[in-house]
């Protein structure tokens, strides 16, 4: 699965997490910031982690992925960082 495909699917999951919140014209790209662009709360990332595991299997461990990062790194996380992680895990699965 290509990073582009994963990116598009993660975009759909993000919209599901935000559940009706109007993103308006905000496109979800690899450069989109969870905090600055999507106003993601930390608990939204937890929910996204659940959806990722449901979609791609339990090998996608967002808790483990985030545990290795500092608070500042989590706050500045971009969608592309997550897509890269998911793609790499799927390749090694």
């Amino acid at each position: 699965m290509t990073t582009e495909t994963v990116l598009a699917e993660i975009g759909d999951l993000i919209r599901e997490v935000l559940d009706g919140y109007d993103l308006g014209a905000v496109p979800i790209t690899s450069d989109t910031s969870f905090d600055a662009d999507l106003a993601f709360e930390s608990i939204d990332l937890v929910v996204l982690g659940t959806l990722l595991a449901e979609r791609y299997g339990s090998g996608i461990d967002l808790a483990g992925f985030l545990s290795a990062r500092t608070l500042s790194e989590i706050i500045t996380l971009r969608v592309g960082d997550l897509a890269g992680y998911v793609t790499a895990r799927l390749e090694h699965a």
Partner: peptide, 13 residues
Amino acid sequence: DTMASYYFTIAAA
């Protein structure tokens, strides 16, 4: 706070 404070830190370990 929320459960995220654990989810991002010690929960997986």
